[in-house]
Design a binder for these strands. Structure first.
Length: 487
RNA sequence: GGCGGCAUAGCCAAGUGGUAAGGCAAGGGUCUGCAAAACCUUCACCCCCAGUUCGAGUCUGGGUGCCGCCUCCA
């Protein structure tokens, strides 16, 4: 029984073997910080967070690095619009990123390299590419010559001669004219007047987009102790919209210099769709994470996480209000299960020395080992949570569960452990000062019972509604007995 | 045009060739003055056609439909 994962590079599921036994080097191509993150970013972050958590739970020592692209045309445009600096914009949205992702319970990466902090490494890499003949200067810019790299296209399956070239409206004719081949891409762009710029052997300018990741992987995973120079990492992850050209170009840059694979496994998450179309800025069909979580009737963050994990990470998911609402209902069950021990553990005399359930854990592991089948993993969680929710209801309604206490404890411990691997966690709410005391409730319940005896149902229902409005649920039992609980 | 992916119940969604996980919603039953809550319970032959096989949702070929990338993008 071993972990296997789908590798975009081979288009196959492969057994996972890290370069160094027990250790995993993982890099996730993060976001360009020119705006708030939307649900699509949220999905990617959740998915890779789960992969990272799972590998850790599986016993690997994981080094997880995620970059921020903080040099970019869109950031620049925004800073001009607002009359401020590129740095001010990126700082703002990096701070927002951390706020949003903390709400989704994304664990922080081990390192967050930024383009602006990687300039030396970027320039060194460009220089090496130039020395080896893969890069050429042109009117102040420096370009990568894709024809010099025979493997170009191995990740995306693109063949240079079969692509539609020059169809881009975004690339200026000027830039197009400076390239030896339309598929060549910029490693370094010369500064236009008024733009932020860094000194370089090619004049003042700024790095192209793709080069930062190549440089960051190299720097963040350089480890002289283990004889690795950051040449090859185990897992390189990102959205499937990055396969081409971004990841293809990263490979071209890094492997041209090192002659070694940049990453063993290339993993790509599917997109979040809206009405069947990809959520994206350009289509204007995006919802930011904070919009979603701060809306009236907003779902709980954990419900959103569950919504994301109900589908396989490589498939597209459709973002709809109904889907989120359904996930919220489902989360309520998991949450009830996760809170069970906090609410009833003491009352049930739990000892804390119970073992988890090996069969559920084995099942969870089997499905997660199969390219992170979180959908099936959730089914394992629901199996446990449903039983705990039932037990919880029985305690409220019958005063007993009919189940052995240590079985429940074992189920609960298992649920909590496995859920946390998926980053699904529920905290007991702090005790609130009740708006109405137990004694008052008892009095009202007694009054209602009297009213019922005299068939004064209007009064009985009034009391019931009043209590309901205060969050007190009445439960009429056979024989005229009425139980109540705070919901 | 090139590359890749997807099509499973009302909705979402897993699925290793041997008679379809899970979630949501819905229905029925018990209980109730009515209700709520709770408990019990019901609910698919897998886009179409052909083929391989003792046996296919699961493999092969063809068809239809949808999506992504080829331009910034998680």
């Amino acid at each position: 029984m071993s972990l296997s994962l789908y590798n975009t590079l081979s288009r196959r599921q492969e057994p996972f073997k890290p370069l160094e036994p027990g250790k995993v080097r993982m890099y996730y191509c993060g976001v360009t910080v020119y705006d708030y993150c939307h649900v699509g970013h949220g999905r990617a972050c959740v998915v890779w967070d789960v992969v990272r958590r799972y590998l850790t739970w599986r016993g690997y020592e994981v080094r997880y690095v995620q970059n921020f692209t903080d040099i970019d045309d869109k950031i620049l445009n925004r800073s001009r619009q607002e009359g401020t600096t590129m740095e001010a914009i990126s700082e703002r949205y990096i701070a927002a990123y951390f706020e949003d992702m903390a709400r989704l319970n994304i664990k922080e990466a081990d390192e967050y390299p930024r383009a602006t902090h990687t300039l030396d490494g970027i320039k060194r890499l460009i220089h090496e590419l130039e020395t080896k003949g893969f890069a050429y200067p042109s009117a102040g810019d420096v370009y990568y010559s894709v024809r010099k790299f025979p493997d170009y296209g191995k990740l995306s399956g693109q063949k240079l001669d079969e692509r539609r070239m020059g169809a881009s409206g975004r690339v200026s004719e000027n830039e197009e004219a400076q390239k030896q081949d339309p598929a060549d891409f910029a490693l370094w762009k010369s500064a236009k007047p008024g733009e932020p710029a860094w000194e370089s052997p090619w004049g003042k300018g700024r790095p192209g987009w793709h080069i930062e990741c190549s440089a960051m992987v190299r720097e963040c995973f350089a480890d002289s102790a283990s004889n690795h120079l950051g040449e090859t990492i185990d897992i390189h992850a990102g959205g499937n919209d990055l396969i081409f050209p971004h990841h293809e170009n990263e490979i071209a840059q890094s492997e041209a210099v090192t002659g070694k694979p940049l990453a063993q496994y290339w993993l790509h998450n599917g997109m979040v769709n809206v009405n069947g179309e990809k959520m994206s800025k350009s289509l204007g069909n995006f919802t930011t994470i904070r919009q979603m979580l701060d809306a009236p009737n907003a779902p709980e963050p954990m419900a959103v996480r569950m919504f994301i994990l109900q589908a396989h990470y490589r498939k597209p998911i459709d973002f709809t209000d109904d889907g989120i609402a359904a996930a919220q209902n489902g989360w309520n069950i998991l949450k009830a299960g996760l809170l069970f021990g906090h609410e009833y553990g003491e009352r049930l005399g739990w000892t804390g020395s119970i073992e988890t359930q090996a069969d559920a854990i084995a099942q969870f592991r089997t499905v997660m080992d199969d390219d992170f089948n979180t959908s099936s993993a959730l089914a394992v969680l629901f199996g446990l949570a449903k039983q705990l929710e039932r037990a919880s209801n029985l305690l409220i309604h019958e005063g007993e569960t009919g189940e052995p206490s240590d079985l429940l404890e074992s189920q609960w411990l298992t649920l909590v452990e496995l859920a946390s691997v998926l980053g699904l966690e529920a905290q007991p709410e702090p005790e609130q000062v009740p708006s109405i005391s137990d004694a008052e409730i008892e009095t009202l319940v007694a009054q209602r019972t009297e009213a019922k005896k005299t068939k004064n149902f209007a009064e009985a229902d009034r009391i019931r509604n009043d209590l309901q409005a205060q969050g007190i649920q009445l439960i009429d039992k056979p024989g005229g007995l009425t139980l109540w609980h705070r919901s």
